[in-house]
Design a protein around this nucleic acid. Sequence first.
DNA 1: ATTTAATTGTGACAATTATCACTATTAAGC
DNA 2: GCTTAATAGTGATAATTGTCACAATTAAAT
Lengths: 206, 206
Amino acid sequence: MAKKIPEKVVSRLTFYHSIVSEFIEKNEQNITSSQLAHRLNIDDSQVRKDFNLLNKVGRCRVGYCPKDLKETIENTLGFSNKRNAFIVGAGHLGLALAKYDKFDNYGLNILALFDTDPLKIDMQINDKKIFHITKLLDLASELNVDIAILTVPRQPAQDVADFLIESGIKYIWNFTPCVLSAPKYIKVWNENLMASFLQFACKEID
Amino acid sequence: MAKKIPEKVVSRLTFYHSIVSEFIEKNEQNITSSQLAHRLNIDDSQVRKDFNLLNKVGRCRVGYCPKDLKETIENTLGFSNKRNAFIVGAGHLGLALAKYDKFDNYGLNILALFDTDPLKIDMQINDKKIFHITKLLDLASELNVDIAILTVPRQPAQDVADFLIESGIKYIWNFTPCVLSAPKYIKVWNENLMASFLQFACKEID
DNA sequence: ATTTAATTGTGACAATTATCACTATTAAGC
DNA sequence: GCTTAATAGTGATAATTGTCACAATTAAAT
């Protein structure tokens, strides 16, 4: 990637992407920084600064070209770098994520799910099969997968994580409410719904 | 709240809370800033700065008292300010969130779920009943609920959001992949899984 | 053609957040 | 008791992020 895109900008880019896609569907020819800013409740100059980072130029009194913007955002965020991943834990959350169509669009390819519940094994979700977790090691090396999305319950979380690491998984996107212990060379990303809510609550709810 | 806690600190506090709870379960009498820092892959001085914000003092060569810390974090994050909420959309994601036990602990009380699918109506999830969405308006005013967790599919998302707003909902925690349009006085919090992943991907995955 | 008003682009600044380096404290070992 | 080493506390500084104000541009109106 040419320029490093700051974390917050990455987050906003995905929002811009959604909104811009809407505009394209509605066949709009232009979109202005203040339209975007208004939808996201942010400052319009920030939108323009963000686009500057992408070397996008708009036209005064007109705005930006949605198609062009969309493409640039996709390239910047690397939607084209396909990455393969497994979902580990086929409970409601795992299934929800397996059905989440945005992952594909954004370059994250869910290849299969894993669970231990015999009733779930061999089920299909969105063309993705659920395997018994004992199959994970072989499939990971066969399919060259090193990203796991961990959606098991709290209790087995650490044990399953340890197993994933033994199986060659290098990146864990952790949806469990545990802070996993892992060696330094394993990258863990904690999805933290409570933190997210509390930030919302602190900021907005009196 | 006495002092304003910065957003990032709120996020870390929830992680500290998890880890500290573990320590308490293991009956540890002390926890050091570097133990916490190590688990979260951050700088230990940051942990200490965070605790300073809470007016917590540790003991040199010993660390902090887990029980004391836990209590302080809970008070700071306002776990005791109970807030009532509805989940709107009883798909996998809605059900996953309904079962997510941490919400209760952190002061977010899910009172009921809503859907339109006749097969789901009247089912119970974790003592929470699923109602037809037409019941929402009455129940919201009856139970004094103004927070909705929106977990419907992409397509109906905006329409459902409009309906929620008409029904008196003031805060929407939006799990759909849409950027909702809403009047300024409605607070929308977009949960953005893709942004979260992309931040992870940009930072950690080469 | 001229004027007007909307919009971008951007420098200056402000606020927030993280890191570093160092001091002070004190439990533990001798 | 004295020394050592681990740990907290903290000021200085750096990096990141957001806001504001305003000049430059230009489409649209006249």
